[in-house]
Design a protein around this nucleic acid. Structure first.
Lengths: 347, 347
DNA sequence: TAATGTTGCGAAAACGTTTTCGTGTTGATA
DNA sequence: TATCAACACGAAAACGTTTTCGCAACATTA
């Protein structure tokens, strides 16, 4: 392979010093017009571009930020990434995306890798395994090393850093209230195991809405899905209770869509026999039948906000920095799985 | 912020030279046991990690590869990314993901950014706008600069580099043949405009299957979706033909799922009145009702293969390298949108 | 003519590594 | 005692930049 053109090679070509070349390319008045022009022409001809590594090393910053997410085959995270990329683009930053695959070890590995000068700051959504283990030393170390950190979505209370979260409690409240408003009397929740923070918070909102409306809390109606086992079967049990639910709030899209499937297999009509709604306005919700009412999380905005906070911290690294927690509001997206509307028929 | 620990600082601490520290940390026998141990202890205490930028600059390689994809909110691409990450992990490489957002300009911007020493090789799936413009100079330049390049999924024939593609023609053939086999007589295709290569190829397979079975090619049944306008309305027209289709092959999941929606609104039964199938086994296909028969593209495998090719090229950069094109086979995933099966009812 | 200012360029340090090639000291051997 | 290894370490180059400073050569001014 032909090696890239460098200042040194240009310098040799014209028998001048490297500094002269560097200055000429920067249009420095220190260099005579004549020399300047010929160097610039030569550089342009060979498509000279300064080597980023050298620049980064010299400037002690890379204009790159690291992003560690649990998995990428996930609509919400891709939305967040898009938001991050959007701001990164505006501000001339690059994004390095790493996957932890929900693994504690890989999260640490990724972090170590990123922390060695490669990036100016790091954004993380915590892996499930890390949440379970409750071992957050790698985050503390990162902060100790003075590397700006922002957590989003799945965050850790005890870590002192900038955070951006969905208003999960508010969203759960919104959802449950909606089901109450349309007349549901027995409202079930399909949620995650207790170590997943977002599931827990959405459930809090659900409970809050029930209490405010003087509904009893029925533990039979709280189903913590174990993703290692068949989801359909777990949901099926819910419909086989002596008094089954007439409203279901699922804390994510998959659970909600699966609930619709199961309901149909039980020959139940949605929403007439049972209203079902989800959380996250992803790809699926619009294509189930009936289409899913859901809570929109605004992942794109979240990504934007997250990077903005990080860049803010990066720009103020010397100053005494005060950490913030931004809460992104949710919205109800009304579709057919919770409303009894006349079927749309063309013509 | 407290600045990171470096060789220089350790050297100063013990009043030895930088080289001594470097060697001590590498357990060189050149350094006395005593000095070695105390340096190692000190370094461990302060979590010394060599600065990646410096290493990269010295070694003239970064163990990082760049990935440019048109968009990330897309199940297929996330699968490919997962496959790439999988191999990258195994081989100790990092992946830098950039989004072109289907824009020619951003593709070039990303490429320029990556090409300045930041990565050892680049993987690209070409943006739609680039395909339209047919301006491929940035790829040629990259190759001229000796930077290994692999194209995947959306590739360019005239560029001489490693490529990994889906067997789109074969997949289209598989799809159309399936519809013929289940007894469809008038088979429509929902495809993309002509500049999108994958759509064109899938249509080729469709045509091939029709011809082989002595079906006429009816241009009324070839619908090129214009994504700038309402997709539902375009599909609706298809059902309002004097002799409407009884089978539909959509070249992606969204078109297929939308077709189901439209069929329902037209009060048509799927698959009895019209069988519908898609391409790409994404998130949606399993949750439509009926669930979608589709062609699986194996994005994960594709990602793995793509990075393997790239690493192969990187490892053989001096040798005369012969470019390959790998074709990833497709599979038919049979679901309910094309088969008349008894409804599953629990109990 | 002497002092001063301007112009045009180069040397060198700095960023943080690794590695090759000394080199001074010690101890053993001839 | 002179010679030679072995040992333990340092100097310096290299990767590719940017930038400060210094210094000639020439021009201008008093």
């Amino acid at each position: 392979m032909k090696s890239k053109i460098t200042l040194k090679k240009i310098a040799k070509e014209f028998d001048v010093s490297i500094s002269t070349v560097s200055k000429a390319l920067k249009d420095s008045h220190e260099i005579s017009e004549e020399v300047r022009e010929k160097i610039k022409a030569f550089a342009a001809y060979y498509h000279y571009k300064p080597n980023s590594l050298a620049l980064n090393l010299r400037n002690q910053k890379t204009k790159t930020i690291g992003l560690i997410i649990p998995e990428i085959v996930h609509h919400f995270f891709t939305k967040v990434i898009s938001g991050i990329e959007h701001i990164a683009n505006e501000k001339g930053y690059n994004v390095m995306i790493c996957l932890s695959n929900e693994s504690y070890e890989k999260e640490i590995l990724n972090m170590d890798m990123l922390a060695n000068g490669i990036v100016d700051g790091i954004i993380v959504s915590v892996a499930k395994e890390t949440e379970e283990k409750r071992n957050y030393n790698h985050f503390k170390e990162l902060i100790n090393n003075g590397i700006p950190l922002v957590l989003f979505d799945r965050v850790i209370d005890e870590i002192n850093c900038n955070k951006v979260i969905t208003d999960d409690v508010g969203g759960g409240y919104l959802a449950c209230n909606h089901l109450i408003n349309i007349g549901c009397k027995r409202i079930a929740i399909l949620t995650t195991p207790d170590h997943v923070s977002v599931g827990v918070n959405r459930k809090k909102g659900y409970i809050k809405a029930l209490l405010e409306n003087n509904f009893p809390i029925d533990e039979d109606l709280v189903l913590k899905i174990d993703e290692k086992n068949n989801i359909e079967n777990q949901i099926k049990n819910l419909f086989e209770l002596t008094s089954p639910p007439d409203g279901i709030f699922a804390v994510n899209e998959i659970y909600a869509a699966t609930a619709i499937k199961v309901a149909h297999k039980k020959e139940l009509k949605v929403p007439d026999d049972v209203a079902i709604m989800g959380f996250t306005n992803g790809l699926i919700s619009d294509f189930t039948s009936p289409s899913l009412t859901t809570i929109a999380q605004h992942g794109f905005t979240m990504g934007e906000k997250t990077l903005e906070l990080l860049l803010d911290e990066i720009d103020n690294q010397d100053a005494e920095y005060k950490c913030k927690t931004e809460v992104i509001k949710t919205d109800l997206i009304l579709r057919n799985s919770t409303k009894k509307i006349p079927k749309v028929i063309y013509k």
